[in-house]
Design a protein around this nucleic acid. Structure first.
Length: 985
RNA sequence: GGGCAUUUAGCUCAGCUGGUCUAGAGCAAUCGCCUCACACGCGAUAGGUCACAGGUUCAAAUCCUGUAAUGCCCACCA
């Protein structure tokens, strides 16, 4: 039984009491499960046939050993909201959950643990080490699932996938083999980013460049066979002195006058018994440094290219730990930084250092470990990206895939057009092993397993031993298959047929290259020829792409503006926040703060807003339940009898709450009801509700989720609670409508705040627990009920009430004290309008008496102005006003002395007066000051507007309707001005 | 060096295709209220030359150009 049904209604919403039980109920009712039409319908109510169109979201799989931070909380709140929204819209909503094995990150963690025990992975050996990692994985993987549950996420847990699952690994191997056979994967010797700590290659995307203070060393390389007039040395500059051990040449620009004669000559490389040539290459910038560049093909990507052009040897002087190797002569065995110091010191002694400058340059660091990356020559596997990138760029540019916000297309295009080959081999043990086998002389056989490799070797006539490549593939090489490998690719599964392509991908923009771009490429490449639901083969790009919409959400920063991250430790644990504020509160707050693609500073306290809002919803419902009981007792007819909706008919209503004899509120599925509104307030709230429903849907569909929350927050809090519920207190006849609106409110905001709405909805409708709001229909607007006129009219009533409240506040009236009010209005329409809402105004303003009467003041002024045939200007009005005093007043107009009455303007439409006790001198002065200030403001606006309207340029060029509007405004200012003048005295 | 953003109240942010903008909200502040849902609340008040300089226009927070500051991405740096 839910809390609210127990009739022990605490004053404040206590999320802890309801969240867990509803989550369990959702799972028990299989709410999250998505099924194909050919599967047994899982909906216990049997209400819907399972032929709903699918809506699919793939969860970006978090690292299996990680914990979720606030960024994850935000992203999953977004995804869950969309999944729940579409579930309510009648889609078969499938949210695919899972975790990523995160090669380097996970392996590093386990190695760190081993290190504490004084061991390395090599002590264990490959198999035992991998066992260790699996053990670690099992210990940690529950954690993420628990966190997602605590956040109220509703993925289809049955489908939970881990990127190292056997079936998933099959997909990875398949992808590798296919690309290899197509010639899109190759093995090559290249300069790659080497992490001496991870002992592995990294892709370009895994390296971050940071400005780093260092030194620029200028070395002198002696010229051999120096002739007279020639310099003794060539001076080169370097930031990495230790690489000089691998120098094979010095390059100059071929047009550089200083060195042109020396091209082809030789230099003596210090320490190494090696003569190196001076070569000419366009790459060299004459202006930079000395114009001479040392060439180290094995340790610098540019030098590598130059080396290839000039057919130079590649001398690798470091080992995998970035220690100098045996090719480094006397420095062999030293760490790179130790060697650097030593080399510089010795050159200094030899007089071969020209100078050492302070120098700031950017240096690559590992994204994961933070260690300095060494450009390093080695054998690695690569994917040729150009052929994959072309169609992947096309689908985004042609609008088959929409980016939200759109501008990310620029970033995407830039990367795609300048794309470089992807280094996919990693010298790790944790991951999918590269399916390549080598013969004794380096022959390569790629196959899905060793038998296939053997067969290929046999076919090629190789009979010898085969050894599998020890390396694994980059984690992202498995991630890029996520949208289809999770459905069983490469098998032609029914799930894959039906649920591919997905709809929405939500992610932070920082993995647009790592993941988003590659998934698009992967989908187009690998889904080719797979079956569609109708059995035909996929060919068209729109059937190949993995999703249609990509939502790039904002990045959360801390109060100092720093990115929230694990390493900084500045992200609160989402679970702590959930415990403290409630899940709905955290979800709401994150979405409320999440402007599309704009970074946001997040402080924990902002969750109070969400908590307060949940509490507001809770108390509004509590209030409505109370009012409904009252209404019921005075209306013997069962007004709340359930209507014959499809939903209600489909369920045996056995567990209906009986405490109050109500079965259910009438619901009109198409939108907000039903009963014809009787009062202006009713018309107004119906209009506002339907407008909100319309705006919310628009914002949802445009992926403007923070707009969704803002529309709902404003409507619920301000319109419904602050205004309408106050009116319901005065108009019990509006109770049924208020109940209906509330029911719609709960449905509208359920995708964002699932727990509190589920709880309240059950309390309100008395629906049994196996009927879930999350399975019910979403609210759709009845646009015919959007009533601009009613909204405008009610806005005027609000204005009157607000003016009255201001008068009360200024008169220092405590709320319990009543007062006399007079409202004077210019037009007949306003008089009728106000009279019709007399009841509301009287009660809300606590009026002991309320006179509503015609105000002829403005007309008097106008006629005076006319009489004196004067044009519009302030001075003229002063004269007009004074002459107006001489015109006899309408009989109904009593003089209201400013001593006895305080007044407030109702725009240009009239005035409201409050009768006040004799005020102190001080209060009167204060009041006058306030009015004077107001007058000044109005006069200023009047004058500037008047000037504008007297300007021929404006009058002749601005469109007619603007001019009319401005003239009306001017008239309103004029009246306000005059009235204020009289009050100020 | 190239690109993408941002700059609006003390703070965090709305303000979209120029005129309903007399620039809003939430926190924080001030004042008054335990008004028969909610003090996680209600009512009211104060607070802004919309970064700066030009331009386009009858009209600019909004469009254009430039400048400055901040953030992010990419490339390169011997």
């Amino acid at each position: 039984m839910s809390e609210i049904e127990k009739r022990e209604l605490p004053k404040a919403y206590a999320p802890q009491d309801v969240e867990q039980q509803w989550y369990e109920r959702w799972e028990a009712e299989k709410l999250f499960e998505a099924n194909r039409p050919d599967e047994v319908p899982q909906d216990p109510t049997g209400r819907r046939a399972n032929d709903k169109p699918p809506f699919v979201v793939c969860m970006p799989p978090p690292n299996v050993t990680g914990i979720l931070h606030m960024g994850h909380a935000l992203n999953n709140a977004i995804q869950d909201t969309y999944i729940r929204y579409h579930r309510m819209l009648g889609h078969e909503a499938l949210w695919m959950p899972g975790t990523d094995h995160a090669g380097i990150a996970t392996q590093t963690k386990v190695e760190k643990k081993l290190k504490e025990e004084g061991k390395t992975r090599h002590d264990l050996g490959r198999e035992k080490f991998i066992d260790e990692v699996w053990k670690w994985k099992h210990e940690h993987s529950d954690f993420i699932e628990k966190q997602l549950r605590a956040l109220g996420c509703s993925p289809d847990w049955r489908r939970f996938t881990f990127t190292m699952d056997a079936s998933y690994e099959k997909a990875v191997v398949e992808a590798f083999v296919r690309l290899y056979e197509k010639g899109l994967i190759y093995k090559g010797k290249r300069i790659i980013n080497w992490s001496p700590v991870a002992q592995s290659a990294l892709s370009d995307e895994e390296v971050n460049y940071k400005e780093t203070k260092g030194k620029l060393y200028h070395f002198r390389y002696p010229l051999i066979d120096r002739k007279s007039g020639e310099p003794e040395f060539i001076v080169i500059a370097t930031t990495r002195p230790e690489t000089m051990l691998g120098d094979v040449a010095v390059a100059v620009n071929p047009t550089d006058e200083r060195y042109i004669k020396l091209i082809g000559r030789k230099l003596q490389l210090p320490f190494m018994d090696r003569e190196i040539p001076i070569i000419a290459d366009d790459y060299v910038d004459k202006e930079f440094g000395t114009g001479c560049v040392k060439i180290t093909p094995a340790h610098d990507p540019n030098d590598f290219e130059i080396g290839k052009r000039h057919d130079l040897p590649q001398i690798n002087v470091m080992d995998t730990k970035a220690h100098i190797n045996e090719l480094g002569g006397k420095f062999a065995g030293l760490d790179r930084f130790v060697a650097r110091k030593k080399i510089v010191a010795e050159l200094e002694e030899m007089g071969l250092i020209e100078k050492i400058d302070e120098y700031t340059h950017s240096v690559g660091y590992s994204e994961r470990g933070g260690e300095m990356i060494e450009p390093y020559l080695s054998d690695q596997w690569f994917v040729s990206m150009k052929p994959l990138a072309e169609p992947a760029l096309k689908v985004v540019e042609d609008g088959l895939i929409h980016f939200h916000p759109e501008r990310w297309i620029n970033t995407y295009r830039h990367w795609m057009t300048g794309i470089r080959d992807w280094c996919i081999s990693r010298q790790l043990w944790w991951g999918q092993r590269i399916p390549a086998w080598y013969g004794v002389d380096g022959e390569i056989f790629v196959g899905r397993n060793d038998a296939e490799a053997r067969a290929k070797a046999d076919a090629a006539g190789y009979k010898g031993e085969l050894r599998q490549d020890p390396d694994v593939v980059d984690t992202w090489f498995s991630s890029w298959l996520w949208p289809f490998a999770t459905f069983g690719w490469p098998e032609n599964t029914k799930d894959l047929q039906l649920f591919y392509p997905g709809n929405l991908l939500s992610t932070a923009p920082d993995i647009i290259f790592f993941w988003v771009a590659r998934m698009i490429m992967g989908g187009i490449e690998f889904m080719q020829g797979m079956e569609m639901p109708d059995g035909s083969k996929r060919e068209k790009l729109e059937d190949l792409i993995p999703f249609t919409d990509v939502y790039f959400h904002n990045i959360l920063r801390d109060q100092q503006g720093r990115k929230m991250s694990k390493s900084l430790g500045n992200s609160p644990d989402p679970i702590d926040l959930v415990r403290k504020y409630g899940t709905d509160a955290v979800r709401f707050t994150l979405l409320y703060l999440a402007p599309l693609g704009q970074d946001v500073r997040f402080g924990e306290e902002s969750c109070e807003q969400g908590r307060n809002f949940a509490n507001k919803l809770y108390n509004a419902t509590r209030f409505i339940l109370m009012k409904r009981d009252e209404y019921q007792s005075t209306h013997p007819e069962p007004k709340f009898e359930s209507e014959d909706t499809e939903y209600n008919n489909s369920v045996a209503r056995t567990s209906v709450r009986e405490t109050d004899g109500l079965k259910s509120v009438p619901l009109e599925k198409a939108g907000f009801s039903a009963k014809p509104p009787s009062t202006l307030a009713d018309k107004w709230i119906l209009s506002r509700a339907n407008r909100t429903a319309r705006d919310v849907k628009k914002a949802f569909d445009a992926y403007l989720i923070n707009d969704v929350t803002k529309y709902l927050y404003d409507f619920i809090w301000k319109d419904y609670c602050d205004w309408y519920l106050e009116i319901v207190k005065l108009q019990p006849e509006s109770t049924p409508l208020a109940v209906e609106i509330l029911e719609g409110i709960l449905r509208m905001i359920h995708p964002i705040m699932p727990f509190v709405t589920e709880e309240l909805w059950h309390g309100l409708t008395g629906n049994p627990e196996n009927m879930l709001i999350g399975r019910d229909d979403y609210i759709t607007a009845d646009e015919g009920k959007i009533d601009d006129e009613a909204e405008e009219e009610f806005a005027f009533i609000q204005k009157i009430i607000e003016a009255a409240r201001l008068l009360r506040a200024n008169a220092k009236l405590v709320p319990s004290k009543s007062a006399e009010f007079i409202i004077r209005l210019k037009t007949q329409e306003d008089l009728i309008l106000t009279e019709a809402s007399r009841n509301i105004i009287e009660k809300i303003c606590k009026a002991s008496s309320l006179i509503i009467e015609q105000d002829t003041f403005g007309d008097v002024i106008a006629s005076a102005a006319k009489q004196s045939k004067m044009s519009n200007s302030t001075e003229n009005f002063e004269i007009a006003a004074s002459s107006a005093a001489q015109i006899p007043r309408n009989d109904t107009m009593r003089e209201l002395s400013s001593k006895e009455y305080a007044a407030e303007l109702l725009a240009g439409r009239g005035q409201i007066f409050i009768k006040q006790e004799a005020q102190s001198e001080e209060d009167t002065k204060k009041e006058k000051d306030r009015l004077r200030k107001e007058l000044e403001r109005i006069v200023k606006q009047y004058e500037s507007l008047n000037a504008k309207l007297s300007d021929d340029n404006f009058v002749s060029r601005a469109p007619e309707h603007i001019i009319i509007k401005e003239k009306e405004k001017l008239e309103s200012f004029r009246v306000q001005m005059e009235k204020l003048k009289i009050q100020v005295g």
